[in-house]
């Protein structure tokens, strides 16, 4: 019996583990290997160059620039959708009519592709007839033709706004699900004890939403780390690298300049950043489980 179970385990796991090893685990390991070479992407010959690629990272101003932009991007892409999502969830949860319609409206951008979202927002920022300039013009009675995506000062922020538009709904539905798990009688006690709305929010609701917050923040961190496509579509990292992130920089070095060895070194850095964040996440998750589990 036990032996038979063992055979079935093997039969069931062979294909999934095979695919996963060949297409995820092995490439991950080889990324480290290539980061110590000078492979150019097509030649069969390449040399082992030791830590040369990593030394280059230190002096590469564009890498530093991309790292700073990644930090800005991640902080904004995590904080803004989380806070907006929480706000929307609280508003919708207050039993107003049409709650499910609002929910769908705020949530549906998540089913659009990065290409389409990018396209939509390129039009909003279009200098001549973009909605943003038209709206500013209508309010200030001028006719601005500011090119939001073509100016180094506003490019990154403009893409972040588009990102937040797409990802706020995700945070909102997770918070809404979290809100349904708050016991009704706890809120009744608040009412009986005469707690103000703010007190109820600060002392009861937000602490009880901690598990939801952990999930929201984790999802936002993961998604923002992967946020490459929308930058590629909207700015391509420009103008003058002002919206370059690590993922973008890695793509340009590897697939535009064919410096695959150097590109691998950048992806190793990206991997270490991801690993650190995942480590923190699993630790926090365990803490949450201990408190609320």
């Amino acid at each position: 019996m036990e032996r038979e179970t063992g055979v079935w385990r093997l039969v069931f796991l062979a294909l999934p583990l095979g695919v996963f090893t060949v297409l995820v685990i092995w490439p991950l390991a080889s990324s480290f290997y290539y980061s110590f070479t000078n492979w150019n992407g097509f030649s069969d010959n390449f040399e082992f160059v030791g830590f040369l690629n990593f030394k280059k990272l230190w002096t590469d101003k564009l890498f530093f620039n991309a790292a700073v932009n990644t930090a800005i991007w991640m902080v904004a892409a995590v904080l803004i959708p989380t806070l907006l999502g929480l706000g929307l969830a609280l508003l919708i949860d207050s039993r107003i009519p049409g709650g499910s319609v609002f929910k769908s409206i705020f949530y549906f951008p998540i089913c659009l592709s990065a290409v389409v979202v990018g396209q939509i927002w390129i039009w909003i920022y279009q200098p001549d007839w973009g909605l943003l300039n038209v709206a500013i013009g209508a309010v200030t009675n001028t006719s601005p033709d500011f090119a939001w995506l073509a100016k180094p000062d506003t490019a990154l922020g403009s893409v972040i706004a588009a990102w937040c538009w797409q990802h706020t709904g995700l945070a909102m539905v997770i918070y809404l699900a979290g809100l349904t798990s708050i016991p009704e009688d706890l809120l009744e006690v608040c009412e009986i004890e005469g707690a103000s709305t703010w007190q109820r929010l600060r002392v009861v609701i937000i602490p009880l939403l901690t598990p939801a917050t952990v999930v929201v923040v984790a999802l936002n961190v993961i998604n923002s780390l992967k946020g490459f496509e929308i930058l590629y579509i909207m700015t391509g990292g420009g103008p003058f690298n002002s919206s370059d992130t690590l993922a973008m920089h890695m793509y340009n070095e590897s697939f535009k300049k064919y410096l695959m060895g150097y590109g691998s070194a950048i992806s190793v850095v990206l991997f270490i950043v991801a690993l650190t964040i995942i480590g923190i996440y699993f630790r926090e998750l365990k803490k949450v489980d201990e408190i609320y589990g």
Partner: peptide, 23 residues
């Protein structure tokens, strides 16, 4: 083993791009 597989969900795809291209 389960955790290793689930962790795959969290990584930016750029990390495995170059080896897959070579493969």
């Amino acid at each position: 083993l389960f955790l290793v597989i689930v962790a795959g969900m969290f990584f930016p795809p750029q990390v495995i791009l170059i080896p897959l291209y070579r493969l």
